[in-house]
C-alpha cells in the first residue's frame, strides 16, 4: 500500500506541476458554464430544472471530452518512461511492476477526479448562485460527475494498454487518437448506419441493446440520459433504457468491466516486458 501511495502521489504532483490539472479544470468548468447558460434558454415552458438540462447537455459533451483528456493523460504513461529511460531506474527500486501501473492509474484517476469535481462541481455552484435557481436534480448531476470519472477510468486503462503495447511515444499517440475516434465517433456512426439499412428490422431490441453495451461511451450516454425520470423525458428517450433491459447496475458493471479488462491486460503485458 505504501508503494502505491508514493507512486500515486508522484503522478498527482506531476499533474499539478505540468498544469494538467489546471488545464482540465478550466476546460471542463468553462464547458459546463457555457452549456448551462445556453441550456437555460429553453427551460421556460417545459418546466425542467436547469440542472437537469445541464446534465443532458454535459453528458453529451463529456462523451467527447472526458475520453480525450483521459487518453492524453495516459498514452504516454508507460511508453514515455520506457523511452526516456526513467522506467529502467524505477524498476530497480523495491516496487513491483503491477504497483507501477496501478499507482499511475490511481494518480491519473485522482487528476481526473479533481478536474471533474472542481470543473463541473464549481460550474454548477456558480450557476445556482447566479441564477438563483433551485438545487433540484443535484443527484443526477452528482451521478453524471461520478459516471464521468468512470468513463475517464475506462480511457485511462485503454491508454495504458496502448502505452505498454507499442515501442514509441509517437505510435502510442496515434493509436490513442484512433481509439478515441473509434469509440466516440465511428462506432456510433456505424451503429446508426446499420440501423438505417436494417429496414426489415433484423436487429431487434435485444441485439441493439447488446450493441450499445459494447461501447463504453454509449453505455455512459444511456446511463446518464436515463438515470432520472425528468431527464429521460427531457432527453426524449423516456423508458428506452428500461425497456431495453438496461438497468443502471448493468450499465455501471459494463463500464467497470471496460476499466478492469484493459488494465489487467496492461499488467500482463508489462509483467512480461523486458527492458
Amino acid at each position: 500500500m505504501k508503494m502505491l501511495w508514493i507512486l500515486t502521489m508522484k503522478e498527482l504532483r506531476d499533474g499539478f506541476r505540468n498544469r494538467w490539472i489546471a488545464a482540465a479544470i478550466i476546460v471542463l468548468g468553462i464547458l459546463a458554464l457555457a452549456l448551462s447558460v445556453l441550456g437555460s434558454a429553453p427551460t421556460g415552458s417545459v418546466r425542467v430544472s436547469e440542472i437537469d438540462v445541464s446534465v443532458i447537455s454535459l453528458a453529451s459533451l463529456s462523451v467527447y471530452l472526458i475520453p480525450l483528456i483521459a487518453l492524453l493523460l495516459s498514452f504516454d504513461a508507460m511508453v514515455g518512461e520506457l523511452e526516456r529511460g526513467t522506467m529502467l531506474l524505477l524498476l530497480t527500486y523495491p516496487v513491483a511492476r503491477w504497483q507501477v501501473i496501478v499507482g499511475k492509474f490511481l494518480g491519473h484517476l485522482s487528476i481526473l477526479f479533481i478536474a471533474i469535481v472542481v470543473g463541473y462541481g464549481g460550474a454548477v455552484i456558480i450557476m445556482t448562485l447566479v441564477t438563483g435557481g433551485g438545487t433540484e436534480g443535484w443527484q443526477a448531476y452528482a451521478l453524471m460527475m461520478a459516471s464521468s470519472l468512470v468513463l475517464g477510468a475506462v480511457f485511462i486503462a485503454l491508454g495504458y494498454l496502448v502505452s505498454v503495447l507499442v515501442r514509441e511515444r509517437a505510435t502510442a499517440a496515434g493509436v490513442a487518437i484512433g481509439l478515441w475516434l473509434v469509440f466516440v465517433v465511428l462506432y456510433d456512426l456505424l451503429l446508426f448506419g446499420v440501423l438505417m439499412m436494417d429496414t426489415d428490422q433484423v436487429i431487434g431490441q435485444q441485439l441493439f441493446s447488446m450493441l450499445m453495451l459494447i461501447s463504453p461511451t454509449d453505455t455512459y450516454r444511456v446511463f446518464n440520459l436515463s438515470s432520472f425520470e425528468g431527464i429521460s423525458e427531457a432527453a426524449g428517450i423516456a423508458g428506452v433504457a428500461s425497456e431495453a433491459g438496461l438497468s443502471g447496475t448493468l450499465l455501471v458493471s459494463v463500464m467497470l468491466l471496460w476499466v478492469v479488462l484493459p488494465l489487467g491486460a496492461s499488467l500482463l503485458v508489462f509483467q512480461r516486458r523486458e527492458l
Binding site: 531506474l89 530497480t92 523495491p94 516496487v95 513491483a96
Partner: peptide, 25 residues
C-alpha cells in the same frame, strides 16, 4: 527476474549507463 524478490531491492543500488530522470523535477 521481474521483481519476484522485492525485498532484495532495498539493499541494491544501480546507476544505469545513461541515467535518465524526471526532467521537470
Amino acid at each position: 527476474a521481474f521483481g519476484t524478490a522485492l525485498a532484495q531491492h532495498k539493499t541494491l543500488g544501480y546507476l544505469p549507463e545513461s541515467v535518465a530522470f524526471y526532467e521537470a523535477m
